[in-house]
């Protein structure tokens, strides 16, 4: 019975918060797919963490991921480097994301200053298109996210406190410069 299985018991989250999270998911991939890379760090809290890893690395507890950023400044550095420093053949991504599953949700503590947080996961599929038109299935996997609602009461917006991108394959073709 679904009711007795804790993994299928839906955490309590208001429809407003749920749709705010869904907007975050969609906005994130559009920012990347449309090349608005400077917006990417802005989806994260200041101490936000972003990491790409492979499923096998993740399963084995190998924590040295790819594109590991443990604060927003590191993300800004990455994008600066992508724009100004690194040499790579021009290409873009197109992400297709699945529905977001809320794994946990609730207030972090009990005081009025505490914030609403949620743990979610979302499948993605990412196709890479090269400047000459060549297309390739670049990566599939899931986003394992920690989301925190920030901002003044009544106008809180969900931000990523942590996004762990668990790619199904440990292989990367040529290079990984644009975040997934």
């Amino acid at each position: 019975m679904a009711a007795t299985n804790p993994s299928t018991r839906a955490p309590t989250i208001s429809p407003e918060r749920r749709s705010a999270i869904e907007r975050l998911m969609v906005d994130y991939v559009h920012a990347i797919d449309e090349g608005e890379y400077e917006r990417w760090p802005q989806f994260f809290t200041e101490d936000g963490r972003y990491q790409v890893t492979g499923r096998d690395n993740h399963a084995r507890g190998w924590v040295a991921g790819m594109l590991l950023c443990d604060n927003r400044d590191m993300m800004v550095d990455r994008i600066y480097s992508l724009r100004q420093v690194n040499v790579w053949e021009p290409h873009t991504y197109r992400h297709v994301i699945g529905p977001t599953q809320v794994l946990e949700a609730g207030m972090e503590g009990c005081s009025p200053a505490d914030r609403f947080t949620a743990k979610t996961q979302t499948n993605y599929l990412c196709v890479r298109t090269m400047h000459d038109g060549e297309q390739k299935l670049f990566s599939t996997g899931r986003y394992l996210d920690e989301i925190v609602f920030e901002g003044p009461a009544g106008a809180e917006t969900p931000m990523l406190r942590s996004r762990l991108v668990i790619a199904d394959s440990n292989r990367i073709d040529t290079l990984l410069v644009i975040p997934l």
Binding site: N57, R60, W62, A64, M66, S169, N170, I172, D173, T174
Partner: peptide, 11 residues
Amino acid sequence: QIIGRYNHIMP
């Protein structure tokens, strides 16, 4: 102790 592995396909 291994902390990470990357399988890098090069063209």
